[in-house]
Design a protein around this nucleic acid. Structure first.
Lengths: 206, 206
DNA sequence: GTCTATAAGGAGATAGAC
DNA sequence: GTCTATCTCCTTATAGAC
């Protein structure tokens, strides 16, 4: 037994609760969005009181920032441990697939910046901005490499591809299909990937 | 001069103000979104007091509903007066182009249902729902026709195409490009249309 | 019909007891 | 560290004078 069993245990419990809070916040953010998510919602979902919640995160802004940082970290990790033999375009496709599965699993849209208000708020979170810029740099390089090797259209400005790529990670069509079509999650992912890379048009025979 | 100059004039002014209110609401909705738009914002933008605003629209819900109905009407009108010789896919492309231009011009995203909260609210507006269903029916027919004649991919479920089509009308990439790239609106529209129909992949030579 | 003033309730954040 | 109770501000909506 450790010499500091009590302290260690407490800290561990504290950390566990912190994760539970972030999980709850993530789920609520995904369903109601930032503006409608209240700190009461989060506290109730975790089963603690609001003041206790504020012991962990000193504001709603900070709580959401941490939840999004966890998401970005997940994406960066997934990208980092990817098979190095994959082509740039294959890596982009695999990461988009990951992001779609996260969302279908009740998680957050990858890029929550649909709202100008939220985007502006996140701008003030230096840790978040730093991590996003790091990931963005990697994705930008992948897009440029894929355009150079002919996998992606090099007549399009790379900005267009990059921003559209982000947009596909939070495509509302995913929720509509989940709610109003009878498709299972696998089919949704497959179709969304195809639409993202090939569009609606009939594919050329290959 | 009319026999009822005073009444007529008053009514006309009332109607003009109502349009001004809807214009203001549309602009604010486009920039801040529903949750953050306050009735004070709208009243101030129009230059009237809040109680006067409530003489025109009995609730925020009704005001937003009317603004969206005007938008849907615009889309339906544009679709109705389209050249009958255009193919189904050309009509879809032209309407998407219209929707993108409306947004680039400071208007609303075509489909505001990004938020579950707003979507649920609109569900209770029967006039709005009716009009949306009418338009949706026409678009669904166009998609099916385009799949049948080989213009659009008939291996994709038509739901996937239809929902993705809606999603492209409110693609956040548009705002990112407008804000962070040096592209003019024309180029943005062209690129977004290409990405929607052809995806990111290199086009086959044609 | 338009305004000033205000009611009613929600939500972020905290005081202070235990 | 946790809770109950509360503060404060903001927003929807309305009362009532002119």
């Amino acid at each position: 037994m450790s010499i500091f069993p009590k302290i260690s245990f407490k800290k561990q419990a504290f950390q566990l609760r912190e994760d539970a809070i972030l999980d709850a916040a993530t789920a609520i953010l995904g369903s109601k969005g930032f503006d409608l998510m209240t700190m009461d919602d989060v506290a109730n979902a975790v089963g603690i009181s609001k003041p206790s919640l504020y012991k962990h995160f000193k504001s709603k802004e900070e709580l959401v920032g941490e939840a999004l940082i966890r998401l970005i970290d997940g994406a960066s990790d997934y990208l980092a441990q990817m098979n190095v033999e994959l082509s740039p375009s294959q890596k982009l496709s695999a990461l988009l697939e990951w992001a779609l599965r996260v969302r279908l699993d009740g998680g957050l849209p990858f890029l929550p910046s649909t709202s100008a208000h939220v985007r502006e708020m996140l701008t003030r979170n230096i840790r978040y901005v730093t991590k996003v810029l790091m990931l963005n740099g990697k994705l930008e390089k992948l897009v440029l490499a894929a355009q150079k090797n002919g996998e992606l259209d090099n007549t399009l400005p790379s900005d267009v591809i990059l921003y559209s790529y982000y947009a596909r990670t939070c495509d509302p069509a995913v929720e509509y299909l989940q709610k109003f079509s009878k498709m299972d999650n696998e089919s949704i992912v497959t179709c969304m990937l195809q639409v993202a890379f090939q569009g609606f048009k009939t594919m050329p025979h290959n």
